[in-house]
Protein backbone atom coordinates (compact mmCIF):
# COMPACT_ATOMS: atom_id res chain seq x y z
CA UNK A 1 0.00 0.00 0.00
CA UNK A 2 2.67 2.48 1.06
CA UNK A 3 4.84 1.36 -1.86
CA UNK A 4 1.99 2.05 -4.25
CA UNK A 5 1.50 5.51 -2.70
CA UNK A 6 5.19 6.35 -3.02
CA UNK A 7 5.27 5.08 -6.60
CA UNK A 8 2.24 7.13 -7.62
CA UNK A 9 3.71 10.27 -6.00
CA UNK A 10 6.98 9.70 -7.85
CA UNK A 11 5.17 9.28 -11.15
CA UNK A 12 3.15 12.46 -10.59
CA UNK A 13 6.40 14.30 -9.73
CA UNK A 14 7.81 13.06 -13.05
CA UNK A 15 4.76 14.34 -14.93
CA UNK A 16 4.92 17.64 -13.06
CA UNK A 17 8.59 18.15 -13.88
CA UNK A 18 7.98 17.44 -17.57
CA UNK A 19 5.13 19.98 -17.47
CA UNK A 20 7.39 22.53 -15.78
CA UNK A 21 10.00 22.23 -18.52
CA UNK A 22 7.69 22.09 -21.54
CA UNK A 23 4.81 24.44 -20.72
CA UNK A 24 4.60 27.47 -22.99
CA UNK A 25 3.43 29.99 -20.40
CA UNK A 26 6.10 30.51 -17.74
CA UNK A 27 3.53 31.36 -15.07
CA UNK A 28 2.04 27.89 -15.57
CA UNK A 29 5.51 26.51 -14.90
CA UNK A 30 5.67 28.39 -11.59
CA UNK A 31 2.27 27.08 -10.50
CA UNK A 32 3.26 23.54 -11.46
CA UNK A 33 6.50 24.03 -9.53
CA UNK A 34 4.38 24.73 -6.41
CA UNK A 35 2.60 21.43 -7.00
CA UNK A 36 5.97 19.72 -7.40
CA UNK A 37 7.04 21.13 -4.00
CA UNK A 38 3.85 19.78 -2.43
CA UNK A 39 4.46 16.32 -3.89
CA UNK A 40 8.04 16.22 -2.70
CA UNK A 41 6.86 17.30 0.76
CA UNK A 42 4.61 14.23 0.86
CA UNK A 43 7.49 12.08 -0.36
CA UNK A 44 9.86 13.35 2.35
CA UNK A 45 7.18 12.68 4.94
CA UNK A 46 6.63 9.13 3.69
CA UNK A 47 10.38 8.50 3.78
CA UNK A 48 10.22 9.50 7.49
CA UNK A 49 12.02 12.83 7.20
CA UNK A 50 9.44 15.21 8.71
CA UNK A 51 12.07 17.89 9.36
CA UNK A 52 12.86 18.16 5.67
CA UNK A 53 9.16 17.98 4.82
CA UNK A 54 8.40 21.01 7.02
CA UNK A 55 11.15 23.02 5.33
CA UNK A 56 10.18 21.90 1.84
CA UNK A 57 6.52 22.79 2.41
CA UNK A 58 7.35 26.43 3.06
CA UNK A 59 10.52 26.94 1.00
CA UNK A 60 9.63 24.79 -2.01
CA UNK A 61 5.95 25.58 -2.34
CA UNK A 62 5.91 29.11 -0.93
CA UNK A 63 9.02 31.21 -0.92
CA UNK A 64 10.98 29.95 -3.93
CA UNK A 65 7.94 30.04 -6.21
CA UNK A 66 7.26 33.61 -5.05
CA UNK A 67 10.84 34.47 -6.01
CA UNK A 68 10.27 32.96 -9.47
CA UNK A 69 6.96 34.81 -9.79
CA UNK A 70 8.64 38.13 -8.92
CA UNK A 71 11.37 37.45 -11.47
CA UNK A 72 8.68 36.72 -14.06
CA UNK A 73 6.81 39.94 -13.25
CA UNK A 74 9.97 42.03 -13.32
CA UNK A 75 11.27 40.75 -16.63
CA UNK A 76 7.95 40.02 -18.40
CA UNK A 77 9.65 37.78 -20.95
CA UNK A 78 7.39 35.15 -22.47
CA UNK A 79 8.39 32.25 -24.62
CA UNK A 80 7.01 32.58 -28.12
Amino acid sequence: MIDFLILSILLSLLVASIMIVFSEDLSHSVITYMGFGLGSTLLYFLFSAPDVALTEAVIGAGISSTVYLVALLQTSVHES
Partner: peptide, 21 residues
Protein backbone atom coordinates in the same frame (compact mmCIF):
# COMPACT_ATOMS: atom_id res chain seq x y z
CA UNK B 1 9.45 16.64 18.03
CA UNK B 2 10.49 17.00 14.37
CA UNK B 3 11.43 20.51 13.38
CA UNK B 4 13.51 23.14 15.04
CA UNK B 5 14.87 26.62 14.58
CA UNK B 6 15.19 26.67 10.81
CA UNK B 7 11.86 25.00 10.14
CA UNK B 8 9.91 27.16 12.59
CA UNK B 9 11.61 30.33 11.39
CA UNK B 10 10.73 29.50 7.80
CA UNK B 11 7.09 28.88 8.78
CA UNK B 12 6.92 32.31 10.48
CA UNK B 13 8.51 33.91 7.43
CA UNK B 14 5.93 32.17 5.23
CA UNK B 15 3.15 33.75 7.30
CA UNK B 16 4.66 37.19 6.69
CA UNK B 17 5.06 36.37 2.98
CA UNK B 18 1.31 35.62 2.79
CA UNK B 19 0.65 39.02 4.34
CA UNK B 20 2.86 40.74 1.77
CA UNK B 21 0.98 39.01 -1.03
Amino acid sequence: SPGGGFQGGVIIAGAFLLRFL
